[in-house]
């Protein structure tokens, strides 16, 4: 009985010492998870998640402060990737928060007054122009974030869906007529 007690005391002294030592000695700083999450996000910097850009959203997810279903441009696939990365369950988009068709912003140059407000709103510097000069969207850089729509005082910016053409056309997933699973 007494020996059992001594054994317990001895073991716990030793283990406690080891644990207390390593808790200080091997403390890990920083969070590599943020980088991993950021790599999954589509980098539209659109702020639709409620955070000012992709990186802040990634940080919020890593801290557990934000849900994984707040990024419409990433699509459901993005949520799946995040779910897998974080080891949590997939969570569908909320009502009306789903992704829209891919589009680029387009400035109606007849109406544009060259106020530069959209330039300041664009998170990726995809609008070219200077004060009092008409602006143009560099479509190849435009992420379709729509952040330029609101600031425009003359509402000359619209989103133009990217149409399918021979260049961006994709092969369809082959339809297998045989598997007729009734939609449940």
């Amino acid at each position: 009985m007494i020996s059992a007690l001594w054994v317990m005391v001895g073991i716990s002294l030793l283990l406690g010492a080891v644990l207390g030592y390593s808790a200080i000695k091997f403390k890990v700083e920083g969070n590599p998870l943020v980088e991993k999450i950021d790599a999954v996000l589509p980098q539209t910097q659109c702020g639709q998640c409620g955070f000012p850009g992709c990186k802040p959203y990634a940080e919020a997810i890593a801290k557990g402060e934000a849900d994984i279903n707040k990024c419409p441009p990433g699509g459901e696939e993005g949520i799946h990737k995040l779910a897998e990365l974080l080891g949590v369950e997939f969570k569908p988009f909320g009502e009306g928060a789903g992704p829209r068709a891919k589009a680029v912003a387009f400035i109606d140059e007849q109406t544009c007054i060259g106020c530069t407000l959209c330039l300041q709103a664009c998170p990726v510097d995809a609008i070219a122009g200077a004060a009092k000069q008409m602006h143009t969207i560099i479509a190849s850089e435009c992420t379709g974030c729509e952040l330029c729509l609101a600031p425009c005082p003359v509402d000359c910016i619209s989103m133009q869906p990217i149409e399918e053409n021979i260049g961006n056309w994709k092969w369809q997933y082959p339809a297998i007529p045989i598997v007729q699973v009734n939609p449940r």
Partner: peptide, 11 residues
């Protein structure tokens, strides 16, 4: 739970 230091929580 509040009296157990984090280092020896699991043990």
């Amino acid at each position: 739970r509040n009296y157990v230091p984090n280092e020896i929580r699991i043990p």
